[in-house]
Structures are given as C-alpha cells and as structure tokens.
Design a protein around this nucleic acid. Structure first.
Lengths: 342, 342
DNA sequence: CTAAGTGGGACATAATACGTCTCAGGAAAA
DNA sequence: TTTTCCTGAGACGTATTATGTCCCACTTAG
C-alpha cells in the first residue's frame, strides 16, 4: 500500500509543488516576521507578484495577517507550520536522508533542515530551531547546559524560547575565552540563551593567552574552581563544529599553531579541539573548561553544524565516537552522503 | 495532531475538489469501460471539454488508455483506484457515516458507496463491487453461498470476479421460485455468479403456487431433499432487502396477501419474509428453501440494499437482530441517519 | 525631515481553461 | 453490404486567470 502522498503525487502532480511553495513562504515568514512582501519575495527568490498571490491566499485562509509593520503568522499559521514540518520532510525526502546519515555516521539521531547554510544564511536559524525543538523533548528542569560559540550557535540562541520546563536551568560556556568576535563568543551566546529562556547563566572569563603559572593559579581560584566543577558536570552540551583552518584563522592563532594544524591534516574543530580525518585529536587550545572526555558523562550532546563546506569537518568530528545528536542542513547532509559513493 | 488531509485542506482547499473529480472519472470509467468521452461525460454530468482535459491528464499519468473502442483503465489505474477508495471515503465523510450507522443499527459492519441508487442506477454496481470485495476477505474455498434475487443482487453478480480462492465453492439460490423477471430471479443470479466465479451451482426449480400436498411430496423428492440440506447449511448468505409493497406487487401476489401486508404495516421484505417496522415477521411466502432461523447458523450474512427509498425497509429488516453485514449507498445511509434526528 | 520599508490598488499582457464545432475511422446493427 | 452510431483527435475563439509592472498613501527608524 502506497502512502497517501504518493497517491496524490500521481493524481495531482503539481500539488506538491504548490504545497512546497506555500510551505516555504510560511517557514520563511516565521523566521523574518514581521516583514513585507518585497523583502520576503527577495529572500525566497520569487517575484513580488507571485508572492503576493500566495500571501493573499494565505491571509484568506487565516494563516497570516497583514499589518503596517509587515506580515506575521497567526496562531493557526504557527500551528499549521509545525504540523506541516514532518510532512514536508517526507515529501522532500529529508527523512530518508536522515535515516541514511544516521547509519553512515553511526549516531543515534540526525535532524536535517531544508536548504544550505552556505548559500542562504538564515538556514542557520532553522537549524537553531530544530536544535531547540530537540532540546525541548528532554527533561530540562534544574539542568546545566554547556554551550560553545560560533555563528551557528548564535542561531540556536536566536531561536531559544522561554518555557516553564526550563525553570532552574543554568547555562554555562563550555570552555574559556576562545577569542572570536563578541557576538559569537561562548560567553555571549550563553548569556543570550539564558536571557531568552528566562533562566540563569554563569560566565567564564579567561584570557586567551595564558602562561602556565597563571593558568595553574587561576584554576585554584575559589570562584573559578566552583564554576569549573559545574561545567564539567553539565548534563547537556550544545556545540558547533568548525573547519580546522577557518577556526584557526578566526582565532588569530600563532603561526606555529597554524603550521601544526596543517601538518597534521586537521579538518575539524569543536570546543577547542582540532581533529584529523580519522577523528583523532591533533591539537588542543590551552584553556580551561569542558574536556573531550567529559562528554561521555553527558546525557545529551547536540552538535549543530550545516553547510556543504562543513561536511568533511562533521564527518571527521563524529568519527571520535561521541554519541552525539547531529542537527545539520540539506547541503551538508547531501555532501556527506555523496562522500560515501565517491 | 490533525491528519494530513485536513492540513492539505487548509493549504490547498481546492485540491480535494480536483481529487474528487478525477476519482469520479476513474471510478465511473471502471464501471463502464470501454467507453467514449461523450457518454462518460454524460453520466458524470460534466461537459465533454472538461472531461477531455481530465482524461488527457489521466492518460499522461498512465492511468488510462485510449483505443478505438473507447477508454479503459490501465493496470496502474486499477491499482490506484483501489488504493484511493478508503482515502476518498474518508474525505467525503463516508467512513464517518459508516461508524454512525453501525452503531445505530447495531450490526458488526457497514459499507457505504458514494451516490444514491435511486438517482443513478450504476451505484448498484458499486454496491455489488463492495459486496464482492467484502466477500473476498472471507475464506471461500469449498463453501456454499446462498443468494437471493432482485436487481441489487444482479449488480453483485455483475461485479463477481473469478479467483482461485473460490475453488470448489457452490452457489445455490436461497429459496425457491419467487416469481420475478428471469434476470432478477435467484436461480438466474445464482448461475450468473457461479459462471463469473468459475465455480459450480445448483438450481432449485419450484413452482410459485403450490398446493399443500404437492409441497409435502416435493420436499420428499431425493434430489430436492438433498439440495435443501445443502441450502440450509450454507455458510454464506448474500441477499437483498426490498420494500414490502413493491415486492408484493412485483410478485403478482394475490389480493388478500397484499391486503394482509398492508393491514399489518409491512415495510420490508427479504428472501420471502415480510417485516413490519419493528422487525417482526408478518407474512411469509410459501416456498421451500432457506428459513429465517437458518441464518443464525451462517457464518457470514451480507445484506445489499441501497437507495433513499429503501431506508425504512433496511432499518426494519435489521431490527430482527440478525448479525448481518450491510452494504448500502450514501443515499440510504443518510436517510437512515436523518430518521434518527426526526 | 528623509529614506526605506510597508500594504494596497490598477492595468495590460501572457497563459490557460473551456465551449463549440468538425472530421475521419471503426464497429455493430440493419 | 450499407447505414448509423460511437470513437478519439484537431481546431479555434472566447472567457478566465495568472503574472509582470508601476504607482500611491502611509508608518517608522534614523
């Protein structure tokens, strides 16, 4: 027995097309609301007139409302969009991709959002939403959640929504200062998430360059020592995965570090560790905080990374054998699976 | 969580309309194939041009083929139509009707086909198809199937299809001659079904008017006696339900019988029995064959009757408490349920 | 105050759907 | 055999719809 969708595909072949078009409009609107027709049409890469027809239709259906600030989803629109998500994933074959990727990478769960964050930046927000969605399924009261930096994690922070489930939860940065731009630092993101979720956070202020003695004395400081204990006991870890080279440059690493990374063929980076294609640690940024081995004690590890360009890094990192949940995008997922057949 | 169909109804409201249109075309074509556009358009009550668009579309989808004799469904079309049936029933709310009817009439199973056989005669064939479909789910090898007469049962016979499952099955008429037109007599229908199913049948030739002595001596005849045993042991019974008055007239009953029937407020008729609104037997045609009490020993009793006009008869008959499966049409079903709210 | 963004209206044109008529051919009835 | 009916296919004009294009009045952030 075929599924209803495949029957409809035969009986109304262009239905899926229209359905997808309207789904994309709603999904994009959710990300950018309130927003006007012209801008929305631009990001969706369709003409204004065509978007206009869709929008008036969706308005008539009560799924969105117009106002002087722009359009926004109604309650019903939000609801519909939520229920539509698994359906559209099935339609576009994403759930199929998820299954194959889960097997290939040997990890318990994979979430794929449509698009490629290399091409369209807002896909990062969709990944963020997916990550938060997955997080919500977990028992969250009185938990410690450790987060890292990066633009992707910033996207996760954007999508964080307050919920009574998160009462008493504490956000902490996974590791100390890993010099990046302020808005992408773990500390910043940590604070942002906590503020969005209406819960507490603690920050870890550690200078980037640190002498051995200073390091040793710092971790003996009462305040720092206590926070370190909390971080290492984090039950939930959410982190990004970066390309080794890009990360090294972005952090303004010294030349010998960059040389070392290139020498050892490092391709992936995650919370200060650099990995080669086999998932072996080839370098580690000297800072305090969560260590790789601490992850094994965590109950939930969510890796968020997307974009075709990050495929190799994702694959390398997951070879470490960490039982992590992966949230990625279509672009990365396809690149990862193409890698198989090469 | 809403069903996929209700989501789509919100996102593509006219989808269902189109879907239903194409479904109707396919369904009607199945009944009348091979047939041309003009005749088909006529029975569907749509213009030829509109049907033409649909037909060319369906042809492109490989669901039907054109030939000089007319159009016919392809293998794939048949398949799709079959799979589409439960979906469309859900869409048009028929499965909802089925549930409510099952409860109201207190019987184990109800099948409803779209349409009203009072208005469009070919709906009888749809009922026939549904009845045969239900029959097929049963273990059929080496069974005795008793059938009655009537135009509805003639429709069932039309839809009978051979299948290896029916090997060794024997068709018999439920009761002796109940004077009707030849093509609607139990004997004729019995033979037709057996021929369609490629199995055996036995006929019961008994004159309509019979004196008491003749009757007594007849049932002692070896051949007749043996067949009677077989009929009474029938595991499966398929019968129609008629309106009392109509049946009495059609059988050219004597005036005192018609008087009696009117006097006793008989409304329903089934294999020679007349029932009043409470399901009590008020008259019985004097002929040999299956008796009402024999039904209780049958494993499967299927009553087939449709058309708004037969609603009262159906209700009355099922008040006898027989655990019968009912195959009916939308017209009768709705009339039956309206009766509740009056 | 300005500039950029908002929704809404208007209108011409392109694309599509649909009604209507015609025709050649094959099958079955006469 | 002839005739009649039904078949699919083509053609064409018109009504309807979809879409591209431009303009306008208004709000708001800078």
């Amino acid at each position: 027995m075929r599924s209803l969708l495949s029957l409809q595909q035969k009986l109304l072949p262009d239905m899926l097309e229209v359905m997808n078009k309207r789904y994309r409009v709603l999904r994009q609107l959710r990300l950018m609301q309130p927003i006007g027709r012209r801008s929305l049409a631009n990001t969706l890469d369709i003409t204004e007139r065509i978007l206009r027809s869709e929008v008036t239709f969706l308005k008539d259906q009560g799924l969105l409302e117009m106002s002087i600030q722009g359009m926004h989803l109604t309650e019903e629109g939000e609801q519909l969009l939520m229920e539509l998500e698994p359906v559209m994933n099935e339609v576009s074959g994403l759930d199929n991709l998820e299954e194959r990727l889960k097997e290939k990478l040997n990890i318990p769960e994979v979430f794929i959002v449509p698009g490629d964050s290399d091409v369209t930046p807002w896909v990062k927000k969709e990944m963020g939403r997916a990550a938060v969605g997955r997080l919500k399924k977990f028992q969250l009261t009185r938990r410690v959640i450790a987060v890292t930096g990066g633009t992707t994690l910033a996207g996760v922070a954007d999508m964080m929504i307050p919920s009574s489930d998160m009462e008493g939860t504490l956000f902490v940065p996974a590791r100390g200062g890993l010099g990046e731009q302020v808005e992408n630092q773990a500390n910043t993101i940590c604070a942002k998430m906590a503020r969005k979720a209406h819960t507490d956070y603690r920050l870890l202020h550690v200078p980037d360059q640190l002498s051995e003695e200073a390091y040793l004395s710092l971790i003996e400081e009462p305040g720092v020592k206590e926070l370190l204990e909390i971080i290492k006991s984090a039950g939930i870890v959410i982190h990004g995965i970066g390309e080794a080279k890009t990360m090294a440059e972005r952090r303004k690493s010294t030349l010998d570090v960059i040389d070392k990374i290139e020498q050892e063929d490092a391709v992936a980076e995650a919370f200060g560790y650099y990995f080669n294609q086999s998932g072996e640690v080839v370098h580690k940024v000297k800072t305090i905080g969560l260590q790789l081995e601490d992850l094994e004690r965590s109950e939930l590890v969510i890796a968020v990374a997307g974009g075709r360009s990050k495929a190799k890094a994702i694959e390398a990192y997951l070879k470490t054998g960490i039982q992590s949940i992966l949230v990625t995008d279509e672009g990365a997922a396809k690149a990862l699976l193409e890698g198989t057949s090469l």
